[in-house]
Design a protein around this nucleic acid. Structure first.
Lengths: 110, 110
DNA sequence: TGTTCATGTGAAGAACTCTTCATCCAGCCT
DNA sequence: AGGCTGGATGAAGAGTTCTTCACATGAACA
């Protein structure tokens, strides 16, 4: 039962659609982190963090390994960094163009 | 009052997290489309399409103009194409690494 | 004016996602 | 074994998003 490609894409983007998961990916795309390190950076409950990590693990974006009594997470698809960069750029463009159009209420200009 | 950046990013990705909206963006990043053209490509109710277009309009990713009795939509941030390409690549990598477990998912990564 | 075509909107229930809580597991130490 | 530490899990209520329906709007034109 193969899922249509555009639906797979939508599901993929949805896994990125959560502030904690975005932060996790950004932290991990800088370097590997232990769970307690992530916990120190992101202000959520441990079990919530664990849930979000589980989401990312299930989709295969991150991988975990146990080392020295800790669980270390890492991004398993390095290309994720490119995606985050692209997203950052788009947000920049959108923020800029919103600042320009702010005075005029959004009207359709042919 | 300024929303944390990672939350803005999450919201941005969530607007991409819907099959219809992904298809719309892909169709539009190829060329501008009238609403009835989108409707012919995407199998959803007209009012549902309209809702999804409204979501994309609200976030500023697409713009609409009226021309010759039709409403024409276009992407207003060309960089979106780069993002879709990056996503496609990641999906390709992930599908490949899952090839052992789920061979049927790896077909036809465009 | 009335009618039709093309598109948009508000509202409501269904469906899904988040957060939290309680509990559980796995490895390590004595 | 027993107790610790660091994480993971399941379930349930709260919250959010989707889809559909019914109706609204605007342009064009008879």
């Amino acid at each position: 039962m193969s899922v249509p490609l555009y639906q797979a894409k939508a599901e993929f983007f949805r896994t990125l659609g959560h502030p904690a998961r975005i932060r996790i990916l950004e932290l991990l795309s800088d370097r590997d982190h232990a769970v307690h390190e992530l916990l120190a950076e992101i202000a959520i409950e441990p079990s919530n963090l664990s849930q979000q990590l589980a989401v990312l693990r299930r989709t295969g974006l991150v991988a975990s390994r146990r080392y020295d009594g800790e669980v270390i997470y890492s991004v398993s698809v390095p290309e994720v960094r490119d995606l985050l960069v692209a997203a950052r750029q788009i947000l920049g463009v959108m923020a800029a163009s919103q600042a320009d159009l702010e005075p005029e209420l959004t009207r359709d200009i042919r």
